[in-house]
Design a protein around this nucleic acid. Sequence first.
DNA 1: CGCCATCCCTGTTGGC
DNA 2: TGCCAACAGGGATGGC
Length: 279
Amino acid sequence: MPELPEVEVTRRSFADRIAGAQIEAATLGKPLRWPLGLQPQALAGRVVLGVRRRGKYLLVDLSEGLLLMHLGMSGSLRFVGRDEEPLGDGGPHDHFDLQTSRGLLRLHDPRRFGAVVYVPGESDALARKLLDHLGMEPLSEGFTLAAFKAGLAASRSPIKQLLLSGSVVVGVGNIYASEVLFLSRIHPATPARDVGARKVRALYEAIRAVLAMAVEKGGTTLRDFSAANGMEGHFQLQAQVYGRDGLPCTHCGAAIRLMRQGQRSTFYCASCQKAAKTL
DNA sequence: CGCCATCCCTGTTGGC
DNA sequence: TGCCAACAGGGATGGC
């Protein structure tokens, strides 16, 4: 469910409210993707300093160590303050509770591709394994056209799969990958290094514009995304291609096509998106 | 070795 | 109605 905008919106919806809270208890439900890495009760007494984001990981800084949280494909967080209606006992898909002096942070994740991992610090081997290979943050100052261009030039992978891998720029998931390639008129199977300079620029702009807009609007409500405060997203991503196979292209009217790349669906317009450098 | 493609974890759902 | 394939992520593995 969550791509970068949804993770960022989630972060913003509870970071300020949980900052400064002291952990009273932590409890686990069914196993997630990886083990927590310590006894949950060992977290009691520590203070939550803040919440950062790297790619689709949330980094919950504690007075000692930090928690790496990932929502996988079906995860969501809720934070319910002390002064709000309590959530009550967890359901069958609630797998992590962090009870704090300011309220309860709860991870809900039916498919359990998500994770909560404790590491002593960001230089810890596990933290580095998970975070070091991540590409640039698309909404940061460091994400420049020159750096993006260099990233594409270094890879022969199909551009769609390179975007999805997150090794050049993080946060572009399966939906946004199809959309930004459509917006920049690039055929998804084009080897990354063969994308022409004008199209690289168009793609760069599209990534920044689409992700920034989605964050601003509170994330995409495609199925049932809601932030940790229960607010639903209002960026009804008017998908131009995603999920529209067989329907007419909004630009030229040709039927949108569906192809499979690395076990994932890619939607595109064969007439608008060509390897050639016309734009 | 580095790069790249494939595989797979899982519960839910939409389409047949 | 019931069944089955597909899925909004990404680490692990293995081939070249």
